[in-house]
Design a protein around this nucleic acid. Sequence first.
DNA 1: TGCGCAACAATTATGTATAATCTGCGCGGT
DNA 2: ACCGCGCAGATTATACATAATTGTTGCGCA
Lengths: 246, 246
Amino acid sequence: MTEVSTMRSGEISKAEKAYELLRRDILDAHLAPETPLTISSLKERYELGWTPLREALSRLETERLVTFSPNRGYRVAGVSRSELLDLQRARVTIESDLLREAIHAGDETWEQQLVAAHYALKQAKPLRANMPETELIRWEQRHDAFHNALLNGSPSIWLKRFAEQISTQLHRHHRNLVFSPTLIAGGGADLMGEEHYNALLERASNVDHHTALMEATLQRDEKRAIELLVEHIGLTLLTYEGVQPR
Amino acid sequence: MTEVSTMRSGEISKAEKAYELLRRDILDAHLAPETPLTISSLKERYELGWTPLREALSRLETERLVTFSPNRGYRVAGVSRSELLDLQRARVTIESDLLREAIHAGDETWEQQLVAAHYALKQAKPLRANMPETELIRWEQRHDAFHNALLNGSPSIWLKRFAEQISTQLHRHHRNLVFSPTLIAGGGADLMGEEHYNALLERASNVDHHTALMEATLQRDEKRAIELLVEHIGLTLLTYEGVQPR
DNA sequence: TGCGCAACAATTATGTATAATCTGCGCGGT
DNA sequence: ACCGCGCAGATTATACATAATTGTTGCGCA
């Protein structure tokens, strides 16, 4: 029947709250890479106890969002150009296969949700330099939702899980290497003219590109759809290449 | 003078010890799938405190070796035929690509270690029904080592990480669905004649098959090597198909 | 007499306070 | 200047307190 859980104090466990808060702060680059995460400072920052934080950190560690050294505590995981390239390679492998499966196995519901996600993405204002963070987050959410919808037709649960993890890591690299130029020395738009930077962002986030990808997919044109997906991932890569000087 | 009290506990942390003990017991099917893991019972089993166990469990959860329900504790993760198939699919995707990369990028050290791993595998006694667990473990270790050596020529760190995780999960399914027939009702060799069962095991673990795979790889024959790898994964799958009745 | 519901008891998860151990760093002695 | 001692500050582990869930018992009602 209808089991009503009582849950006297907060609705969700504090460990879960700690996990989500920390995760969001790391993903959005509010905590810079390599920042030491001492329990006491986190207790102060989030007003949480000792156990929930430790549990959250140990979960984040197996997700590779924080690193850990025995008896020396936790730090926010670092970002690097080489890891970015590695992530891009893994993304191509995994998402290509997922898209292939989706094209073969996707049903009507999948098609409808893909069209809906594409429409929502089209409505969001496109990327540009120094845009307000709320707009940036909206665009990122809808962009992620579109790619999720694209791959969602596939039945491969484990591959989708991996794709999600890659996506998370790329999000973090994205934010730290490109979109938060003020937070890292010498990164982002400061390296080139804002005009050029905007052009790159425009190229990487071009809605037409996503439209073409969706159409090829809906027409079950496997070869072309995968070509477009790989090109899309490569374009994003080129954007970083342009941004990163050495 | 006061150097007596240094290094009181073991060299590694108890959380790490708890993690490794639990992990091994789950992987070797000493703890059956769906077994509830209450802290108190684990405290008794491993003679460890409360915090290390909690930390170990939360790490195992993000690895999907245990499942967790809020306010209802942890259990050993379940196994199922559908998840097994899903894992096999993911393995084909990821290992095919890793092998392709290894064939293109592998150096001399890689070749030597691959040959060494193959030699070690050849020395281990092959699989058969009701073999002693120590021999089973030895064969499994060398088999894993061979496949690791095969893929190790690739530079893709994230993909190798994923391959490792898939490998771990398959190991668990393997043990629970095939090699521990006495532990699960109606599984394993009981379902067919021991002769037939042995034939299947023989086919899946045939050393010649691994030899051919290695030789195609060392000759940098990408197409044939990947064919053999996919066939190898499929054979293992067929073994399970034979064992699983419905 | 049998079934269902509700309060109760036991077990277990969750969180806090506290003790013990370890690492890094500065101070002082040689 | 260099080596070692010792003092913070942090991590790691234990004991204790609290809250939630599960199982059970007993009572009421059909």
